[in-house]
Design a protein around this nucleic acid. Sequence first.
DNA 1: AATATTTGACCAAC
DNA 2: GTTGGTCAAATATT
Length: 371
Amino acid sequence: MEEVKGFDRRVHLINELLQGMEFAKQLRNQILNPTNNSCSSPSSNDDYNNDQVALNNLLLEKMLSSFDKTITIAKKLNIQIPQDPSTNNHNHNHSYAHFSESPHSLTISSPNSETSRSNFSPSKKRKSMMPKWTKIVQIGNEGVKGLEGALEDEYSWRKYGQKEILGARFPRGYYRCTHRRTKGCAAKKQVQRSDEDPSIYQIMYRGEHTCAKGAHLVQAQSKAQFQPIVPAQLKSEPQQIPSPNQNEIYVGLGPEGDLKVEPEQEPVNYAQIFRSFSFTSTHLQTDDPNENDMLSFCPAFGSPTTSESNYIPVSPYRPTDAHIGLTVQTSETDNNEGVSGPNSVTNSPVGDFEFPIDDLLDFNCDFPFEL
DNA sequence: AATATTTGACCAAC
DNA sequence: GTTGGTCAAATATT
């Protein structure tokens, strides 16, 4: 269950980064617009200044706390942290994150580091070099599309397996592109329903479609995509989940190396959704050895090219203001299908992936959270 | 008949 | 030995 833990930690890491960013934004607002946050007119200038300073200090403390937690999580993820982060000027020491062969071990190191390489072992049959991407879909209570609508995308998929996953209440469905035989399309996806919040589905994409996008048959596939997720005992109550209005988030390992969290439409309650996967943020703040059982999802991966038609129409490789961009792409060998589809991802070394950590931090600026 | 889904078995990776 | 991913025969659907 290492992968489960790893995914959970990454989600929590994102959470902490987002919190830190939010505190930073508050601090910025406080600095730029000090009077806005003053509850009432100060009785004196001294009191007013003291309040301002106290508030600023509080926000700073919160920021530091968030970043501290982030570092803690990063360490758990085997991310290599510079020995003394407080003295390390990352503006000059460009840091990189690696997803090394261990599918979910994110490593941050200097470009000269050989760490990620040294851990790389020749891929075996079931390891894939395909890009991985995960989409988190939350099924809401409104809308007219139906559950299958929430889970479908512009590609047609054929189910080829279903598996009970250890520690997960719901089985995992395995799909491959319908055009695998005719066009050699190697794209696959897995759909996993959340234990904690059954209205949340994690769709894990692997590999990119080499088939024509328009060739899909939406109707025939969409139902099947959902059904496998429903455990046998629930099939008798197909409306257990109300008609959906979905919220979707990408947590992905994308070709540009930025971890992407992509909301659909309105600001999604990221914290809530993340918690659905991470089982409250306190889990990772402790060193509780029993934390293994807190998540039932497998690692994040998926394909950026499989963004759904009901998504914000943005290039999956270029996060815009509409979504948080932090995607990390990983490459693994896949001899499995005998298909070496043209992968648009070419600039990553075999076995791991690098991206400037600075880019990772950039997404904060446009994060749609507003307190 | 063609295509899709289900599901137990198989197998590679730990 | 256990687990996750895939295969493939049986079955269901169109």
